[in-house]
Simulated scan of single mutants.
Amino acid sequence: MQPLELAADSLEYVLVPWVMTADGVDVDPVARGIAAELAFVRPGSVPAPEAWVTAQWERALGLWHARVLVGPEGAVPLPRGTYDVWVRASGGMQERPVRRSSGRVRVI
């Protein structure tokens, strides 16, 4: 999968798809009170506790996505480089999943 390429001066939302089911039915994270966080780390790294930022849920193209504003003046001002994107969810469920997204972000 090609990385999402962003200009260093771009300010935009990065969306990470999230699929969760319970008893074969898609889970609505907003209705369940599930919180989302994203972390952007160098490839091959795992997020440190301070790397996590609060994300919002958005429904797009029939899927739920965790999203955060990336760029200057955003929640995540990334310097030039390539990043793995991690997502974690908590609250409103027994599990506390932490997953690395299949995509990467490259800031150029």
Rank of each mutant, 00 (worst) to 15 (best):
V85R: 03
P3F: 10
V76Y: 07
A7M: 03
M93Y: 07
D23T: 08
P43W: 09
G62D: 11
G91R: 10
W86T: 03
D84T: 04
W64V: 02
Q56F: 09
L6P: 05
V27N: 08
E95H: 08
W52K: 05
G81Y: 10
P3G: 10
G44D: 10
P47N: 09
A55L: 03
I108P: 01
G81I: 07
P43Q: 14
S102D: 12
R88A: 01
V107F: 05
P77G: 10
V46Q: 13
V41Q: 09
V30H: 07
L69T: 04
R96A: 14
V25G: 01
G71D: 13
E12V: 03
V105P: 10
P49S: 06
P29C: 13
A51I: 02
A66G: 09
A39D: 05
V19C: 10
G81A: 04
G103N: 12
S102H: 06
R100I: 02
G81S: 10
G92S: 08
A75M: 06
D28W: 15
P47F: 07
V107R: 05
T82I: 10
M20I: 13
H65A: 07
G91D: 09
S45M: 13
M1A: 14
A55K: 02
W86D: 03
R59S: 15
P29I: 02
V41Y: 13
G103E: 14
V68Q: 04
P43E: 12
V16Y: 03
V30D: 07
R104W: 03
G71T: 10
V41M: 08
P3R: 06
I34R: 02
L69Y: 06
Q56L: 15
E12H: 04
R59D: 14
R42H: 05
R104E: 15
E5C: 04
P49L: 09
G74S: 13
M1W: 08
